[in-house]
Nucleic acid binder design. Structure first.
Length: 260
DNA sequence: ATGCCATCCAATGGATGA
């Protein structure tokens, strides 16, 4: 089972690119972020015709997450628990029925948090506390769990081409990185770093200032694996070439292959 | 130092993003 995370930066703007990419990559599961659409505006039938189950948790204009899956989905849940007043659509869960076994997946779009300090940064850290609680709860099932999405966190200096440019940014501030480590410390593993070491691996390049041409990227799209999922990990990858295609998202697909 | 570009909604500009 190959699971992808892909921040598409708008389903309307990425419709053609996503339609081209799906039959090329043939993902089993895609966790989408920033669909920037309400559920009724998502082109569900189009992707169903391409062989995918479609589940979305959208909102008007911004944010929004979704799941495309060629495998059956069960027990879909929308929204991150812990704050009934939070109206931002950033979390969706489902159980994917693989050929060998089932995997619980969570797709997430973690708040950006800039400018920091400020209310948006406070919201980011509070959201990460809620995610920590949900991540702990998911571990109790003892089934394989994959939490994948746009974390808006640069875990280590080696995950940025120019780490010095990010020192005061909400993506790299000590509080954000500590909150990310606290989730890992529950017993989760960064799938990419289980297989690939060293600098120079990025998942996002800004549209501005020639960031792509200069390879000025950051690695902020992650798949976190429970111990049971880590035991099934076969391979990982970043589809960097997608950033160079026509009308790309500023993020590229990142994936993990599980024996499931 | 800087939203330099892209997207969405709505309206010929503003908000947001990382």
């Amino acid at each position: 089972m190959r699971i992808y995370t892909f921040n598409i930066n708008g389903i309307k703007a990425r419709f053609e690119a996503l339609t081209r990419w799906l039959p090329e990559a043939l993902p089993d599961v895609v966790l989408l972020q920033e669909i920037k659409s309400v559920d009724s505006g998502f082109p569900r039938a189009h992707f169903e015709d391409m062989g995918y189950r479609v589940e979305t948790h959208g909102q008007k204009g911004f944010n929004g997450v979704g799941i495309l899956s060629r495998l059956p989905l069960e027990d879909v849940a929308r929204g991150l628990p812990g704050d009934e007043t939070d109206e931002q659509a950033r979390w969706i869960e489902a159980t994917v029925i693989g050929a060998a076994r089932a995997v619980r997946v969570a797709g997430l779009y973690l708040p950006n948090g800039n400018p920091a300090p400020g209310p948006k940064f406070d919201y980011k850290l509070a959201w990460m506390e809620r995610m920590h609680a949900r991540a702990a709860a998911l571990l109790t099932s003892e089934e394989p769990v994959v939490m994948a999405g746009d974390y808006n966190v640069i875990p280590q200096p080696e995950d940025a081409a120019k780490p010095e440019a990010w020192v005061d940014d909400a993506l790299f501030r000590p509080e954000s990185r500590a909150a990310f480590r606290r989730i890992l410390a529950l017993g989760y593993y960064d799938a990419f770093r289980l297989k690939v070491q060293g600098p120079g691996h990025y998942s996002f390049w800004d549209y501005q200032a020639g960031a792509w041409d200069r390879n000025n990227g950051i690695r902020i799209d992650h798949l976190l694996l429970s111990p049971q999922a880590a035991d099934l990990l076969e391979d990982v990858g970043i589809d960097k070439a997608e950033r160079g295609r026509d009308k790309p998202s500023d993020h590229v697909p990142v994936w993990a292959q599980l024996l499931a």
